[in-house]
Write a protein that binds this DNA or RNA. Sequence first.
DNA 1: CCGTGACGGTCCACAGTGGACTGTGATGTG
DNA 2: CACATCACAGTCCACTGTGGACCGTCACGG
Lengths: 175, 175
Amino acid sequence: MARRVNATAASLLGFLHDGPQSGYDLVQTAEASIGDFWSLTRSQVYRELAAMADAGLVEAQEAGARDRRAYALTDAGRGAFRAWLSEPPAQEQIRYPLLLVLAFARHLPPGQLAGFVAAHRAEHVGRLAGYRRQRDEALAAGARPVDLVTLNFGLRYEEAVVDWFDHLPPEVTDG
Amino acid sequence: MARRVNATAASLLGFLHDGPQSGYDLVQTAEASIGDFWSLTRSQVYRELAAMADAGLVEAQEAGARDRRAYALTDAGRGAFRAWLSEPPAQEQIRYPLLLVLAFARHLPPGQLAGFVAAHRAEHVGRLAGYRRQRDEALAAGARPVDLVTLNFGLRYEEAVVDWFDHLPPEVTDG
DNA sequence: CCGTGACGGTCCACAGTGGACTGTGATGTG
DNA sequence: CACATCACAGTCCACTGTGGACCGTCACGG
């Protein structure tokens, strides 16, 4: 009985539906397609691939140049992926260190915060611009609404965050 | 030289500024005050307390009833906390399994998603209502804007998410 | 007086993060 | 051509984070 896979492993199985890929490829693929709301690291990918190979969910192919080793989906892997898809997804997790600092702001010398806040705001403004560009490109390429759901999440999220930054009280934004 | 503390340990040091607390207390305190954007678990709290006691950042007091053991801040702990506050906070992390499922929606039988989506929407609607109640209570109690910054983040976030849910294409919401 | 449940903590397995490190092939420049 | 450089591909480790199982202890209601 193939052990239940975790969400990260499942995402790898998902990508392998499009053909065998190496760990390195999978990191790139994942970063590009789900990286905005699902982080994963090299270490994790190789660990999961090894574990899934053990469990028969994927099959390692012959190593190519530079030890490059592609993994192919097996039927058991396809089954494990479908099983994962049918489980109710867990709630999202957010950890925001800046909010932690804000929560302890009374312990900070005044003015200390402004720089941190400005840097984070700039980061979010940049991400928002990036998402808008992505959306425009996708629409120009004829994407359907259903293709934009995850991108739209990012858009709304970043809009909300930038809006929040723009309504912070002066105690927090004045350097 | 007191080792640099991580954000979780630092938050414990922050809470201990208000007086000695046990690990159990700290879990409650943290859950109530920063739980919405900074998760931590029992295991982690006891682990960090032990490590910080080793490093001299906190001091364990005599065990009371039920092995209850309170920890008190030391000067080194106060220093480590201030050092942490002065570091630029990292970017936030979001991991949203539902988006992962949506990203792989083409592998799902139609109709499968609707239930998941509805459940998550309901959860967010509930959280939004809770935040609004909290805000109203805080305002009624005379809170200043600066006291509401983290709560406002939650409010804007949940508003954005619910709005996103309300604009999902029918392929995703129809059961 | 006893069952139940909140209190308070320990322990473990698994998952996730990030950096250090190794070696290899492609590439472009003197 | 030789060689420096850099992207590729993977390994490994320490630390951090998550969640559940488990244990004993006290308080309180029936």
